[in-house]
């Protein structure tokens, strides 16, 4: 994940309490989704950014996962995101996100 984004995530989690922050990601692939999710839960696996060795354990979802999708306004999701469900490999993304959450999310 971009180093500046890591810095912001870390700041907000410290400022607001990690239990109050949810990260939503929009990556196009399972592996990239998992990388972003791991960064905001277990810490930066690439050892490059401010989240290296920092296990925030934040709640994290891909924007196309059912759990969060169910809470969106249907028309807005339809307009903003739905087309991408035909482009991305959602099954792979969901599987990888669930795996990261089950291991590293604390909240």
């Amino acid at each position: 994940m971009d180093l500046e984004n890591q810095r912001r995530v870390k700041e907000f989690a410290e400022q607001l309490g990690p239990e109050n922050v949810v990260v939503l990601i929009g990556a196009s692939e399972g592996s990239a989704s998992a990388l972003a999710a791991e960064t905001v839960t277990a810490g930066d696996p690439t050892y490059a950014g401010p989240l290296t060795g920092v296990s925030l354990g934040l709640q994290v979802y891909h924007v196309c996962e059912d759990a969060v999708k169910a809470e969106f306004d249907e028309a807005i999701y339809e307009d903003q995101v739905s087309m991408m469900e035909m482009v991305i490999d959602l099954d792979d993304i969901v599987e990888q996100m669930e795996s990261i959450r089950s291991q590293f999310t604390k909240y």
């Binding site: 990556a27 196009s28 692939e29 592996s31 990239a32 990388l35 087309m83 991408m84 035909m86 482009v87």
Partner: peptide
């Protein structure tokens, strides 16, 4: 390998997916 996928294919898929939304193509 960087998790960004096959960008030209993703773009073509987006064009096709829009075609599906417009009823020109089937999924």
């Amino acid at each position: 390998p960087a998790g960004a996928g096959d960008v030209p294919v993703a773009n073509l898929k987006m064009i096709a997916a829009l075609g599906v939304k417009q009823g020109i193509l089937e999924r």
